[in-house]
């Protein structure tokens, strides 16, 4: 079984208080902020490792970003992935989720075929949850988001997902794209010896030119239909209202308040 895991390099959450949004470009100023593997992508790597341990196979991690992202891919290799590919090219810079998913799907096509493509459900910085399902669309594969379990029955992938009224099980024919929820597993701690061995594992940096059928109208800024809106500060105020009455009456008041907030 060949599994690809898409990972994103994001600013370290420990430094969120130091991140500034550029008021002109409306992008995050990341200079001086250390980067880490996006938290939910780590759960996707862990899911891939568990599938590999159970069914055998190989794990390839794929990312897009500046050359420094090699560091996060090395970390993924230390976690247990076998091979890594980084698409790093100014042409793909400034991409929104659509352009990112297109570029990643081209890397998947070039380095595949894969039986399964895994990803974290959302990134800690963008948090759109767009990319996994968009990769599925570009590649013509079935996709599922927010999976709470993933397994294989020999032919198909079986995944579960929680809804308001219960849990649903999905059977996805291979190949497919599954985005995992952070509650899917507990990410194992990294072994020191695996870190030292990670530098010997293959990590290939690709440019746009390495992806021959890449249509440049779909990549980078020009391939990104998303436009940033105006920035404004959210006012944060605190107030306290004391509710009086019986348990039933106050419960009804709280219910009405919540409904009111949801409407607003």
């Amino acid at each position: 079984m060949r599994i690809a895991v898409c990972v994103k390099s994001v600013p370290d959450p420990d430094y969120y208080d130091q991140i500034i949004i550029d008021p002109v470009n409306k992008t995050l100023k990341r200079a001086g902020i250390p980067a880490v593997i996006n938290a939910s992508d780590k759960h996707a790597i862990e899911a891939a490792l568990q599938l590999k341990e159970k069914h055998g196979g190989e794990i390839t991690v794929i990312s897009m970003g500046p050359p420094a992202v090699e560091q996060q891919l090395r970390e993924a290799l230390a976690m247990g992935a076998d091979e890594a590919f980084l698409l790093s090219d100014r042409k793909v810079g400034g991409a929104d989720t659509l352009a990112t998913s297109y570029a990643l799907s081209k890397v998947i096509e070039k380095t595949g075929p894969y039986d399964l493509i895994l990803a974290g459900n959302e990134s800690a910085d963008g948090a759109t949850s767009h990319v996994p399902s968009q990769i599925g669309e570009w590649l013509g594969m079935g996709s599922l988001c927010s999976a709470l379990s993933v397994d294989m029955d020999g032919v198909n992938f079986i995944a579960t997902k929680k809804f308001e009224n219960g849990t649903a099980q999905f059977c996805l024919s291979s190949p497919c794209v599954i985005a995992v929820n952070q509650r899917i597993n507990k990410v194992r701690l990294t072994n020191m010896m695996a870190i030292l061995k990670a530098k010997k594992k293959p990590l290939t940096v690709l440019s746009a030119a390495d992806l021959p059928d890449l249509d440049e109208q779909y990549i980078g800024l020009s391939g990104s239909p998303t436009q940033n809106g105006e920035l404004h500060m959210v006012e944060s105020t605190k107030s306290c209202t004391m509710l009086e009455g019986t348990e039933e009456e106050t419960a009804a008041m709280i219910y009405d308040k919540i409904k009111q907030f949801i409407r607003e």
């Binding site: 560091q71 090395r74 970390e75 701690l189 990294t190 870190i195 530098k199």
Partner: peptide, 19 residues
């Protein structure tokens, strides 16, 4: 260096979760 940053990250994670 890159390798030592990973060692720091792994030890930090261990410290938070286990220590």
């Amino acid at each position: 260096n890159e390798e030592r940053q990973m060692i720091v990250a792994a030890a930090k994670e261990f410290a938070e979760q286990e220590v």
